[in-house]
């Protein structure tokens, strides 16, 4: 059994999968809140949409790491000889995918919750939407940091 490519694939999968799930949940709950607010006041749909988009970035970060793993490890081109020669390399890819997988999963969910609160704030005070966005972006910081460390670890594997 050639474990190297399997581990590397697992790394790409876990990064895209978990971060994607997180964003789906985050965008989902903010979408529900937006729909409620917009049903009362359709003029606010633009502001609600911006807040709804914020928890969507973690999914993109997960995809990014998955693609970089696939490119870097040769999964994309099909040339996996390096992974077969050194299976620990595959394990390293898998481990490198973990920060954005879990950081993305949880930060997207919590960012979604903050964004829901922001949307409720917009319903009451439409002029304060910027503050709601800043509050949500505070949570995203940790997804960005996860992305960064995953990225640095992945491109460090030779």
């Amino acid at each position: 059994m050639n474990w190297g490519p399997i581990w590397a694939t697992a790394g790409a999968v876990i990064a895209a999968l978990l971060a994607g799930i997180g964003s789906a949940i985050g965008v989902g709950i903010t979408g529900q809140a937006s729909a409620g607010v917009v049903s009362e006041n359709p003029d606010l749909s633009g502001k609600c949409l911006l807040l709804q988009l914020l928890p969507g970035t973690q999914g993109i970060y997960g995809l990014l790491i998955a693609v970089v793993i696939a490119l870097q490890s040769g999964l994309m081109s099909g040339d996996v000889s390096k992974l077969i020669a050194d299976p620990t390399m595959g394990v390293r890819y898998m481990l490198a995918g973990l920060p954005i997988a879990f950081g993305g999963l949880l930060s997207a969910i919590y960012q979604g919750k903050v964004a829901v609160a922001g949307i409720n704030m917009v319903a009451k005070k439409p002029t304060e939407s910027g503050k709601g966005m800043v509050m949500a972006i505070m949570v995203e910081t940790y997804a960005v940091l996860s992305l960064l460390i995953s990225f640095l670890l992945v491109i460090g594997i030779h």
Binding site: Y61, L64, T141, V144, L145, L147, L148, F151
Partner: peptide, 11 residues
């Protein structure tokens, strides 16, 4: 915190 500059850039 400024690491985000790099991370968002590559994103």
């Amino acid at each position: 915190s400024y690491a985000r500059l790099f991370a968002l850039g590559i994103a």
